[in-house]
Design a protein around this nucleic acid. Structure first.
Length: 469
RNA sequence: GGUCCCAUCGUCUAGUGGUUAGGACGCUGGCCUCUCACGCCGGAAACCGGAGUUCAACUCUCCGUGGGACUACCA
């Protein structure tokens, strides 16, 4: 009896661009599956496409994974460093008669394919070189000899039983003429050698699975379990791509999304746990199973992601928000703010910001005193009564005992009452005087955060502006 | 064309033969209120179609229809 093996999953992106929304979700599912089972999560970089692979992409992918908290136990391993391993595996198959060299010119194969298509036949390699016993030669590829008969089936962890007739499969190329393995071969060799027990990937790979199973068997390896998760679509139900807007993890980070929002959103795309919508990483590790992953493709919904981001911003600790917010403020020219002050600003803004970018934008007035008021606003709020209210507040402030929210609000109410007007009529001129805008956090919050001195200075600025204007 | 996969509100989904078909985003009416938000209460909104099986189908089977993936010396 073979012992129950420890679960080993992997994520194997190719470094040909930024880490994609679809890619991370696959990574997340693999990571969760491993963590849930107390197994290992391995990172492998599939960089055999020499032309399109870049170190920069690799760094970006690693960064994005770390930012999301998806740590890996082994790797990153690079396929380009494993060329000898694939070559040996190919040789072994040739020696055993399970693979053969093929010298068919690409143009001819292309011609045959087109002809087959035109005649409504399946375009399948015709086996010309199967028995020609061609030796090593620069212009040859190696093909895997696929069985003509029989059925290859597997029990998919999310979709259930899937089976293919072997005669639908053709003799796929496993080694290109440049000596590098093809994708289908390299994955099998790598997954087998790395002891991957559960291959969790996008369902665009289901059609690859039977030939890969055949390769596992030909190579004499155990066949892992497969779980094909549905893909993520754009709003037009087409595969998610750049034209649907932001699709990379870094793009969302730069737009001011919190990693937990992205993780929470992505996991709910295809997976669910009853009516629950909010999940921490710990919740997910505890609850995640592949059985609860749906079978159908999901449309990416930016609005729901935005809602989740807002939710997490709302609940975040102010000092943490302050740290996250700092780089976005820096983009606006606000550098090295006092951490405590910034935390108070973040606290004021956290129920009214959907992203950190939005929060930074709303936070500007806290750092820049207003000199030139908007003339339209000034005309409306700095009229004779507005000026009186500002003046009244300014004069009352020094005598205010406790400079706290309650005291401030009471003061404003008292002034409104004394002038026989509504609170809002006092508040709005003050708001414009302090923030330069008609929209801001609660006026008492703003005044507390700005501090008594700051508020008095700003009110003086406003009064000065009124006098000179 | 062939093969494979999929199908509940606009979107993400719960449902596992008998439910007023539930939740969430968005939309929308109201409450709260110093603006904007937050929060709270309410509303509109779905079982792709047709045959079966069954006392009873959203749920099981088959056939349509629609969508998607693959069909490379790309991964």
């Amino acid at each position: 009896m073979s012992e129950q093996r420890i679960v080993r999953t992997r994520f194997a992106p190719s470094p040909t661009g930024a880490l994609h929304i679809g890619g991370v979700r696959t990574a997340l599912f693999n990571w969760l599956y491993a963590r849930h089972a107390g197994g290992k999560f391995i990172l492998r970089i599939e960089d055999t496409d020499q032309l399109r692979s870049t170190d920069e992409s690799t760094r970006g992918i690693l960064d994005s994974m770390s930012w999301l908290g998806l740590n890996w136990d082994e790797g990153p391993l690079f396929q380009t460093e494993r060329a000898g391993i694939y070559r040996d595996a190919v040789r072994k198959l040739i020696d055993e008669g399970k693979a053969y060299r093929c010298a068919c010119p690409p143009e001819e194969l292309e011609r045959k394919r087109k002809k087959a298509l035109a005649e409504r036949r399946k375009p399948k390699y015709d086996g010309t070189c199967r028995h020609r016993n061609i030796g090593p030669n620069p212009n040859t590829v190696v093909r895997f000899r696929c069985p003509d008969r029989g059925t290859t089936a597997f029990e998919d962890l999310v979709k259930g039983r899937i089976s293919f007739e072997n005669d639908e499969l053709d003799d796929l190329v496993i080694e290109r003429s440049d000596g590098f393995p093809t994708y289908n071969f390299a994955v099998v060799v790598d997954d087998a050698l790395m002891g991957i027990t559960h291959v969790i990937r996008g369902d665009d790979h289901v059609n690859n699975t039977p030939r890969q199973i055949l390769l596992y068997k030909a190579l004499g390896h155990d066949v892992p379990a497969f779980g094909h998760v549905p893909m993520i679509l754009g709003s037009d139900k087409a595969r998610l791509s750049k034209r649907h807007g932001a699709t990379s993890v870094t793009a969302y980070r730069d737009m001011g999304y919190l990693p937990e929002a992205l993780v929470n959103y992505l996991v709910r795309l295809g997976w669910s746990h009853g009516d629950q919508e909010i999940f921490s990483l710990d919740d997910l590790i505890r609850l995640f199973t592949l059985e609860a992953v749906g079978k159908s493709a999901a449309v990416f919904n930016p609005d729901k992601l935005l809602w989740l981001n807002q939710h997490y911003i709302k609940g975040a600790a102010p000092d943490r928000l302050a740290r996250e917010l700092a780089p976005f403020l820096e983009d606006l020219g606000i550098t090295n703010p006092d951490p405590d002050f910034l935390a108070r600003v973040a606290a004021d803004l956290q129920t009214r910001s959907k992203t950190l970018v939005e929060m930074a934008e709303s936070a500007r007035f806290y750092f820049n005193e207003i000199r030139d008021y908007d003339l339209q606003l000034a005309e409306k709020y700095f009229d004779s009564t507005g000026a009186i209210y500002i003046q009244s507040v300014r004069e009352a402030l020094p005598g205010l005992g406790e400079y706290k929210k309650e005291g401030i609000e009471n003061l404003l109410r008292k002034i409104a009452e004394e002038n026989g007007t509504k609170l809002k009529n006092v508040v709005q001129p003050i708001r414009v005087a302090l923030t330069g805008k008609t929209v801001s956090p609660g006026i008492d919050e703003v005044m507390v955060t700005l501090g008594k001195e700051g508020v008095m200075r700003r009110l003086d600025n406003a009064l000065e502006f009124i006098r000179s204007g």
